[in-house]
Nucleic acid binder design. Structure first.
Lengths: 194, 194
DNA sequence: CCTACCGATCGGTAGG
DNA sequence: CCTACCGATCGGTAGG
């Protein structure tokens, strides 16, 4: 990687961190530059505007997220369905707790700024579709009968996932664990015939 | 109401609207003043700073929300438990779809700005506690047996509620209705013995 | 409730 | 990648 490319990547990483923690308007180009040890105008050697930089960060975050979601397709199909579904839900949430990506997606996916609204929601919907695909794969390869039709089972899963997502950052990982446990217990009882 | 008090209320209302739609940093005092037909410095006749104005808006929003939550305690106890719980979930969400309050709570409750973080989360937790109280009241006065213990049933309800909350503004009310239907079906099946 | 005004900071450009 | 610089806008104050 060339020196210039290296700097560009550093800018993207620091911008991701600052945009996630402080927000778009609250983060100045000077903030970003300082954390990369360059001067603010130098950023324009790599990005044509603050907006453009932000859009690049969106791509980094969402591409990485989509890659992670798709990597979850490798779960062991011999495992019981419950285990597969639970692991998926937990992994998706754990992913958010581990890095700034989760905070970024929460901040800009849930309340997208006007300027980037369409772009963000498009990416956000794409990730939901990918998760739905994973769910259909798991559910269809299972012989278990479900109390509700597949669409309902899947949509409901997404809703619980989004609910847990809400607790990111505001609550400790321990509090999250408790809520996951409760939500999962009811969800699983709700879709299976006992 | 005196002329001055009237203006103060107008400022609070417009500030609520703009802070909800655009965000704290993206809303200037000039924006607020213009929409109230006064000049920006005049705001200082009523509030000592932008931060102070914002805190006042927080109080308006959360007090109104708490009042609404408590008003939900008046549901007809003779109705079946399912109906009572469903109505509560739907009413809480409908409340958000009706006014800017929902957008405000979503924006600042889910990703609170550093400066107001503690204050906002405190108010937010208070509202969750009030909702939990309503749930315990409904569940305890019911003779129905539940598959999980009360804490689990309640926490899970909150999680579904928060999931649906997530769809506010990003999705149409119709899309919300579909997701509510799916989430509710599974939730209800999950807590009751069939 | 207004006019006049302030220092600080913002995103961005020119030119190297 | 930097220095020097720009116009615009910000929250806020003085004094009425």
């Amino acid at each position: 990687m060339s020196k210039g490319e290296e700097t560009k990547q550093k800018i993207l990483q620091q911008a991701l961190m600052l945009f996630s923690v402080k927000g778009y308007e609250e983060t100045s180009l000077k903030d970003i530059a300082t954390s990369v040890n360059i001067k603010a105008p130098s950023i324009y050697a790599y990005f044509k505007s603050k907006e453009s930089l932000f859009e690049n960060v969106i791509d980094v975050v969402m591409d990485e997220y989509l890659f992670f979601i798709r990597s979850q397709a490798d779960t062991d199909v011999s495992l019981p369905t419950e285990k597969q579904l639970y692991t998926l839900m937990d992994n998706l949430n754990k992913y958010f707790y581990k890095q700034n990506l989760g905070l970024f997606i929460k901040r800009y996916g849930l309340v997208p700024p006007e300027k980037f609204r369409d772009y963000l929601l498009h990416k956000y919907n794409e990730s939901e579709r990918e998760i739905r695909k994973l769910l259909y794969d798991i559910l269809e390869s299972s012989s278990k009968p479900y109390k509700s039709d597949l669409d309902t089972v899947v949509t409901s899963f997404i809703c619980v996932l989004d609910g847990l997502f809400t607790y990111l950052v505001n609550y400790s990982e321990q509090e999250y664990e408790q809520r996951l446990k409760a939500a999962w217990e009811v969800y699983w009882q709700g879709i299976t015939t006992s």
